[in-house]
């Protein structure tokens, strides 16, 4: 598919350019979602994109679907209401590390546990960008943020581990550098009839990068390539994985989906 068609078909062109800083990884992840939706041939009238608050959550405004920009942390709770009330809709949730894992952490756990058919993509930039660089649940320990001027004493949160432990049936991670791979992972997430959790590692050169001397946007993008390793390679050659972040598909299982279970209850009475 031609790139220009992806933009024409899936974006509100009059709302572009987006508000993200030069060098931000979010645009790449947003475009990957659009490509995945196009590749799957989903009816755009039946696609709902829901977000919370933060840099990542501005994405739906640019996307030409049914779009809902909700309150901070609550995207999954709104999305659950949408999916539960109208199961024929394809519901995609775009959220950030602070939005999904801090203020919205409870909703994430329970959306995973229910295995409700939502495809969630976390744009993880390791920082609160919109408010100016405060440490988030995924800021690495000892790194700096405007609210961690002496280094972050929190333990960093592995969101894929969390999602898997909580019951998500599809869990994967890739990065804004691996644009084609994350596109495929999102497609897999859309295919999964259940809760899919895809972590997209992004970069924030403006706040996280500058505060932690990570170099410019290109340097940060390169490190997404150099500091990550596919889980399949890591399994074969563990020595290569030292100090690197695992990417790839972590979990994929088949379990009955939540709204389908509820349909069975409704069916009990339809037969009456």
């Amino acid at each position: 598919m031609k790139v220009s068609n992806v933009v024409k078909d899936n974006f509100r062109e009059d709302k572009l350019p987006h508000i993200w800083c030069p060098g931000c990884g979010h645009g790449i992840l947003m475009h990957a979602i659009a490509r995945a939706v196009s590749n799957k041939g989903l009816d755009r009238d039946k696609v709902v994109v829901v977000s919370g608050i933060g840099c990542s959550s501005r994405a739906p405004g640019y996307m030409n679907f049914n779009t809902l920009h909700t309150t901070h942390g609550r995207a999954l709770a709104f999305a659950t209401g949408i999916k539960m009330s109208q199961p024929d809709l394809h519901v995609i949730v775009i959220t950030g590390d602070g939005d999904a894992a801090a203020i919205g952490g409870n909703h994430l756990i329970h959306a995973c546990r229910r295995n409700i058919d939502l495809t969630t993509i976390v744009f993880n930039n390791n920082i609160y960008g919109m408010t100016g660089g405060q440490y988030s649940p995924t800021t690495p320990t000892n790194d700096y943020g405007t609210t961690a001027p002496y280094g972050n004493i929190d333990k960093t949160f592995d969101l894929c581990d969390l999602a898997k432990a909580a019951g998500a049936t599809y869990v994967a991670r890739s990065t804004a550098y691996h644009a084609r791979i994350i596109e495929k992972l999102i497609e897999n997430g859309l295919d999964n009839k259940g809760f899919s959790f895809i972590e997209g590692i992004s970069v924030c050169p403006t706040y996280y990068g500058r505060k932690n001397k990570k170099g410019n946007a290109v340097d940060m993008m390169k490190s997404l390539k150099e500091d990550t390793i596919d889980i399949r390679i890591a399994k074969k050659k563990p020595e290569l994985a030292e100090g690197k972040m695992l990417i790839g598909e972590f979990h994929n299982s088949e379990e009955e989906e939540y709204t389908a279970r509820y349909d069975k209850i409704i069916d009990l009475f339809e037969k009456e």
């Binding site: 829901v50 809902l68 909700t70 309150t71 609550r74 709770a77 709104f78 999305a79 659950t80 209401g81 949408i82 999916k83 539960m84 009330s85 109208q86 809709l89 409870n106 909703h107 329970h110």
Partner: peptide, 15 residues
């Protein structure tokens, strides 16, 4: 909080 959010989500689909 989620109860209120999901109620609004349901209303958006016409319920």
């Amino acid at each position: 909080i989620a109860g209120m959010a999901a109620t609004l989500g349901g209303a958006l689909t016409g319920k």
